[in-house]
Write a protein that binds this DNA or RNA. Structure first.
Lengths: 194, 194
DNA sequence: CGAATTACTTCATCTACTTTAAGGCAAAAG
DNA sequence: CTTTTGCCTTAAAGTAGATGAAGTAATTCG
């Protein structure tokens, strides 16, 4: 099955699996498809799955008291999406995850994950490393938000995710950068004339 | 030994250890003391240790091209401090870690950590969970930085870390919040008169 | 202990970014 | 095919927060 091959290839990059380990792991995941604008989790509900994105694109975003959305991350092919805290502790998710392109996912629930850690202990290490990397990236983002003006943050974003940037509506990029779409539009114009 | 008891108590809160596991783990950590203003790591050097703070207070901060510091986190008793990425990959640390109070640490280097994962596999899970929590907290901080004005971020900080706030110089709090000391001083004044 | 350095405050000026509002364009819905 | 709706752009006015300068309080250190 194609989708499981994608997962294995992804995991193998960090820790090579044996065929048996890969098969055991695959058996615990389920294929899930999302249409555009469909939710994987909605803020306030409990997040049921850790999800590997095989294809498509999701956005994770927090909706504040004034009803404004703030994008935390985009998840495209070969990335993961979930509200870890909600998943682990069965508490309401603090953000939503929604498809901005039709997406194919491999999902695993909490029970499945716990089985996975027992049956294929390598995954304990795999997720530890995955989270370490995510933590590093998020810390870098805090740094950038604190130390760089919007224009430079935008340029960094374009550099870091050139292919993703093409696929994502401007307003979502603005939200990710923490500025208004209006201002991002101005920045773009500035950048053209330079 | 007192300091090791602190570590065990800390780990036990997440995953109870047997006496033997605790002893094996303790054997891999070393006590390290820092005076005020001493560095645990300096930005650009390789981070050699994962460190558990037994007492005192450290700050982790990034120095940007203009020489301005941006505080990422404070680590007090019962917290950890390190540049994970640097430690794991032997690359230059992207931020510094410095004592702002005399501190006692329990440190473990990369080799020690790898031994630890083998000898006491529970630590694999322990650090996975630790990082998950750190990731959640950091994501929340990104959200706050994007969605809240400085005054509310300051109020949240006071609420979340009332005891730490007392011990930390205003300029460091300002740096953590992403504002200038001048502006934080103004905010404080505003808050007095309300 | 006194001198020097470092931390905090206040005020005035400046700028990066927001808000509001209006017009155009493309996709979705009827 | 027409109408609605959402998305992008441009421009003008407003604000949160930065910067610079100057004075006072608090620490550090010889």
């Amino acid at each position: 099955m194609e989708v499981f091959a994608a997962l294995r290839q992804h995991v193998d990059k960090v820790i090579p699996l044996t065929d048996e380990e890969s098969a055991r792991a695959s058996a615990l995941f389920t294929v899930k498809k999302l249409r555009k604008k469909q939710f994987l989790v909605q803020q306030g509900d409990v997040c049921k799955y850790e999800s590997f994105v095989v294809s498509g694109c999701l956005k994770s975003y927090y909706t504040d008291e004034q009803g404004h959305d703030h994008i935390l991350r985009f998840s495209v092919e070969d990335w993961w999406a979930s509200d870890l805290k909600s998943l682990q502790t069965n508490t309401p998710a603090s953000f939503s995850i929604e498809a901005i392109e039709p997406a194919t996912l491999l999902v695993i629930d909490k029970v499945g994950l716990e089985k996975l850690y027992v049956e294929v202990p390598k995954f304990e290490k795999f997720f530890r490393i995955l989270n370490e990397n995510a933590l590093t990236a998020t810390a870098q983002r805090v740094i950038n938000n604190l130390s760089l003006p919007a224009k430079e943050r935008y340029q960094l974003f374009l550099q870091a995710y050139p292919r993703i940037a093409q696929r994502i509506p401007l307003k979502d990029i603005a939200s990710y950068l923490g500025i208004t779409p209006v201002f991002l539009s101005q920045l773009r114009k500035d950048m053209m004339t330079e």
